[in-house]
Design a protein around this nucleic acid. Sequence first.
DNA 1: ACAAAAGTGTTTTCTATACACCCATGG
DNA 2: CCATGGGTGTATAGAAAACACTTTTGT
Lengths: 231, 231
Amino acid sequence: MLLIRNVMNQNILLTVDAAVFGYEHGHISVLLVKRKYAPFKGEWALPGGFVLENENLEEAVERELLEETGVKINYLEQLYTYGDTMRDPRGRVVSVAYFGLVKPTVFKITAATDAEQVAWFPVNKLPKLAFDHKTILNMAVKRLQGKITYEPIGFELLDKKFPFSDLEKLYTTVLGREIDRRNFKKKITNLKILDELDEKVSNGRGRPGSLFQFNEQRYFELKKEGIIFEI
Amino acid sequence: MLLIRNVMNQNILLTVDAAVFGYEHGHISVLLVKRKYAPFKGEWALPGGFVLENENLEEAVERELLEETGVKINYLEQLYTYGDTMRDPRGRVVSVAYFGLVKPTVFKITAATDAEQVAWFPVNKLPKLAFDHKTILNMAVKRLQGKITYEPIGFELLDKKFPFSDLEKLYTTVLGREIDRRNFKKKITNLKILDELDEKVSNGRGRPGSLFQFNEQRYFELKKEGIIFEI
DNA sequence: ACAAAAGTGTTTTCTATACACCCATGG
DNA sequence: CCATGGGTGTATAGAAAACACTTTTGT
């Protein structure tokens, strides 16, 4: 290894970054950390950090997320690798970006190590971001919108039990447009990924709605098969 | 930079690899090189190599492709980054894989630098591949199949002028199933991405067919808009 | 009783698919 | 004249989209 290093003399460092989305109170939010150290000290950034030599990339993302934010991710996929020569003022740093989904209600987020602070930011109210993280986040949002139209992603974002209107709101929020309630219900019902429970829940006013939960087995079978539906 | 390097002591090397597809004589082929040096000396591999410190990732792929194979690529997109700790026997080497399309007729392929030999291999007659390149190639083939169903990719693979049957054969080849000629013609015609020329060409026997060419402007407009059709 | 949200079917339109015969050429 | 591949239209079925009123609850 040292031999290659010497021959190559390749001074490139490798990091991972994660764009983790959550859904709460009718908003899609993304998990950001305030940087404790230079460069971009005090600015908000995607959680992430340097990959260790003996860990896989996914392990690196999961470790950094847990260290910096306290979040243990339940859905993670690779997004894109950012390698422009000038993207990091410290030198050549290539970053493998990941896309994650999490149920925000499950975790208490707590800053640690390189992070001075952690917070969920609604994707339409983002602060200025460090490095090229705005670019990464833009791509992640596009991925989220794309994914939701051909794969069900509710399972990863909603609580175990939820009223149907939550799922509907999730879709209108992510897609940024109204969808027809009856047609949507029909489509989801046909997929048979939801089990209706006997419980009902009221959100203060109006008629209470039945609670649903995902039929995990059917859900993951469908996901494995690939393209499932179009909203 | 040296400071970070010392603090980090991160001995990870970065390479790029390219899965470049071409279409010729009714076959989808992929460009492979025979390795001149260890490890995997004498085995076939995807063209690629170490990223230089002062070049972007795309530049690295294009450079390596040109150096090793003589091919100047006209379509290139990032595929996936492979970073398992054990994927390279020399140590920790992370590789950013790219997906490329090229018209094989345009280039004379010629091996150089790290490549002892270059050749096009039909994707259904692949030799044993070095590293995890088989895995990479499998993903690249899936990407090709996925792409062709929701984006026209004929422009990048076919000659400037071609009979309609060439486009049809390309689709049946990539998708691995027959498609209905009339329905396919209808769909493509509706997209208005083809201009029919006055010339006709015969391939020896049978009725000669009109030549077509892609209407570049319309073609790239449609691609920019995203999902276009389903075959 | 009224405001607010949940729940529910039918009709219409569009798109995908299935399907078969004639045409132009070379040998 | 025959073998080969090119070229073309219609009918059917299924999916998506448009569309509005009733029900249940809290105040």
